[in-house]
Design a protein around this nucleic acid. Structure first.
Length: 464
RNA sequence: GCCCCCAUCGUCUAGCGGUCUAGGACACUGGCCUUUCAAGCCAGAGGCACGGGUUCGAAUCCCGUUGGGGGCGCCA
């Protein structure tokens, strides 16, 4: 059975690069009916925090990349937080010392290594000294491994110095902890960022020292910003939280992250449907530039083609997350609004903006509308005629609405653009809305007329 | 400085020695549609980093150069 893990260190939000790494691990585990687990690498006592751990886990949950084992759900190979596994690392490190594959290195206060020993330095308890455990790197030979993406890799051992595996505070270093954990947790495949590529030989050396079999490695190229430097806040939002708060759909983010470096026949898809087609070796072996525009396009595709119930649910979750409220409307109305509005926008944030006048009467009239349409002399007649005509419609259907509004233009001998824009702005306050007839139908006869009247009053007051 | 990875339109990619006058997607430009803005449809512009080889033939293989990225922590 295949077992993969995502091992974030809780020192910040979940970066899209991390999300992509998690996705590939998750995808491969699911494809092979294996297990996907989360391990928290919080051995950096200075920077790690429980808050970040929670945020990262929440981001992962939001994306739907759920795990079989982890710090919150437990599992047979726990604990899943490195800070809770200190005894384990110490034990294994001491085993290496007893086999003369590692040694204690004693430091003075100037941080100079003053002594090496295979005995635990019990007589150095005083404050002027500290000690660590260092792994002994063979001075000759080469270390090899086969990377799923990079192919055969080899590194000269002499390139590496003996390195610390247990810090003076008793915590393990990254390179040591991963090896011990991945082995103990029976990890079969390690998919991680390319920034770990040159760490791998050191880890292989540790696997060898323990005579453990190493997992299969794959190093995924990094995500860059448009200027080819590593994607950072300078380029825009980089955390999953950011995209969540800016109205992106989880499926769209996952979709984009998946095709970023992974080519498929049709670009727009739901990763949950394409698990079986995932092939890690097909991932591009080249660092990629994060394209916000394309993400937004993909988001728009998902927004428009997903079942309305799904969009409804995510829209509601989004509004709650960003603490926006909408008027208390019935569900059918809510769905109708989303249905006509989503045709026009790409994100939930934009969906909120465009649908606002469907939920609230307190919208303000756009400057452009007032200037270009409302204040024109014909406006009053147009609006009055509209009220009159709409009032007479008994069966408030799309056809009837369209017929009557077109009649206004005809009777007043005005262009449809002028007439429709004047009405559009009067009813919704803005010049860009979904189709006028649909919008009015959804809003309803009463409300529409109410607003037309209100606009008329606004207009006369505006003129003073 | 040393080690490692990478190199096709602006961006993401297809391409695995002849089918490439290099295909697609986003973005861009123009057109159609049209009540606004999108969407949709049609069209267009735009690329094999450079230099050597190998070969009858190279985007595809090899070498070098250049460029970009990563690593060389008691960070992960």
């Amino acid at each position: 059975m295949v077992r993969l893990r995502f091992a974030p260190s809780p020192t910040g939000y979940l970066h899209v690069g991390g999300a992509r790494t998690a996705l590939f691990n998750w995808l491969y585990a699911k494809k092979n009916n294996g297990k996907f687990l989360i391990r928290i690498e919080d051995t950096d006592t200075e920077r790690s925090s429980k808050d970040f751990e929670e945020i990262i886990l929440n981001s992962l949950k939001w994306l739907g990349l759920l795990w079989d084992e982890g710090p919150d759900v437990g599992g047979d190979f726990g604990p899943y937080r490195q800070s809770e596994r200190l005894e384990i690392y110490r034990k294994y490190a001491e085993k290496l010392v007893s086999e003369k594959k590692a040694y204690y290195a004693i430091y003075n206060n100037n941080n100079e290594e003053i002594e090496k020993s295979f005995e635990k330095p019990s007589n150095f308890k005083n404050k002027d000294y500290s000690f660590v455990i260092k792994f002994i790197v063979p001075k000759e030979g080469k270390t090899y491994f086969d990377d799923l993406l990079k192919g055969k890799m080899e590194f000269e051992n002499k390139l590496f110095d003996d390195f610390i595996i247990i810090k003076s505070n008793g915590y393990p270093t990254y390179n040591f902890a991963v090896v011990v954990d991945d082995h103990l947790m029976k990890i079969t495949h390690v998919f991680r960022g390319e920034d770990h590529l040159s760490n791998t030989p050191k880890q292989i050396l540790i696997y060898d020292a323990f005579k453990w079999e190493s997992p299969i490695f794959m190093h995924i190229p990094l995500i860059l910003g448009e200027d080819k430097t590593p994607l950072s806040k300078r380029h825009g939002g980089t955390s999953v939280t950011y995209f969540q708060e800016n109205g992106f759909l989880k499926d769209a983010l996952l979709n984009y992250l998946a095709i970023l470096g992974w080519s498929v026949e049709k670009e727009v898809f739901n990763v949950f449907d394409e698990i079986k087609k995932f092939d890690p070796s097909k991932i591009s072996n080249k660092s990629v530039v994060f394209d916000y525009k394309k993400l937004e396009w993909i988001n728009g595709q998902h927004l428009r083609t997903s079942p309305i119930e799904k969009i409804e649910k995510e829209f509601l979750e989004y509004l709650k997350l960003v603490k926006l409220k909408i008027a208390n409307v019935n569900r059918a109305y809510f769905q109708e609004v989303i249905t006509i509005c989503r045709e026009k926008v790409n994100t939930l944030k934009q969906l909120y903006d465009i649908s606002y006048p469907f939920f609230f009467d307190d919208f303000i009239y756009e400057e452009d509308y007032i200037k270009k349409f409302l204040l024109k002399p014909e406006a009053e007649t147009i609006l009055k005629t509209a009220i009159e005509k709409l009032n007479k419609i008994n069966n408030f259907t799309l056809e009837e609405i369209e017929k009557n509004l077109r009649l206004i233009a005809e009777e007043l001998n005005l262009g449809t653009k002028k007439v429709f824009q004047t009405i559009r702005g009067a009813v919704f306050g803005k010049l860009v809305t979904p189709g006028l007839f649909e919008s009015i139908k959804v809003l309803g006869k009463q409300k529409t007329i109410e607003r037309l009247n209100k606009t008329l009053i606004f207009r006369s007051n505006y003129e003073k």
